[in-house]
């Protein structure tokens, strides 16, 4: 576990953000009910935020000290945001943005296709087939067996299911 002994880029920045977040949250907790009483709904959140503030200050101080000590270790730097992480995060965000309007089936299929193509680097047809297989399994398990109604979006799923059922009636 010596990895973290060296300074990862952005560590100081991250600990600073946590410190700032703690301050904001403490302020928010204070706003709930101020220091009114022991039973107030704000008492516990304030205590938690106070612990966050103290511990993040300690961490920030430690990191800052380390920051100056190990500045020569630039070679050991690990990339915090390699390209795959950036791309995957972007597609995940896009997924969450459009899933409700476009619908789960289409979004998930496109997502699977892009990510499998990118990470597995298989051929076009193979990727298409793989994504379809994965999606089919997920759909059957969640939507049909466990009746989790995934966002339908532009696909009139219920009509299609009803039509499908009517074929067997």
């Amino acid at each position: 576990m010596h990895e973290t002994q060296s300074k990862a880029p952005g560590e100081l920045f991250f600990s600073l953000i946590l410190l700032l977040v703690s301050c904001v949250l403490f302020w928010q907790a204070y706003q709930i009910d101020e220091f009114s009483s022991l039973k107030s709904p704000g008492a516990f959140p304030m205590a938690a935020a106070a612990v966050m503030f103290v511990t993040s200050s300690i961490t920030f101080y430690n990191t800052a000290v380390k920051h100056f000590r190990v500045d020569g270790l630039a070679k050991k730097r690990i990339s915090i945001m390699p390209l795959p992480v950036v791309i995957i995060l972007a597609t995940l965000l896009a997924f969450a943005v459009v899933v409700e309007s476009v619908g789960f089936l289409i979004t998930a299929y496109v997502f699977l296709f892009i990510t499998i193509k990118f990470l597995y680097q298989s051929g076009f047809l193979k990727t298409a087939a793989l994504s379809l297989a994965v999606l089919a399994v997920i759909y059957v398990v969640f939507r049909l067996v466990f009746q989790v109604v995934l966002p339908e979006g532009i696909v009139p799923e219920r009509e299609i299911i009803a039509w499908f059922e009517s074929l067997f009636k």
């Binding site: 995957i88 995940l92 997924f95 969450a96 899933v99 789960f104 998930a108 997502f111 699977l112 990510t115 499998i116 990470l119 597995y120 680097q121 298989s122 793989l130 994965v134 999606l135 997920i138 969640f142 989790v148 995934l150």
Partner: peptide
């Protein structure tokens, strides 16, 4: 991993 990781992502979302 190239297949497993995308599947985990979709499962996490669902």
């Amino acid at each position: 991993k190239g297949i497993l990781i995308p599947v985990i992502f979709v499962l996490s979302i669902v």
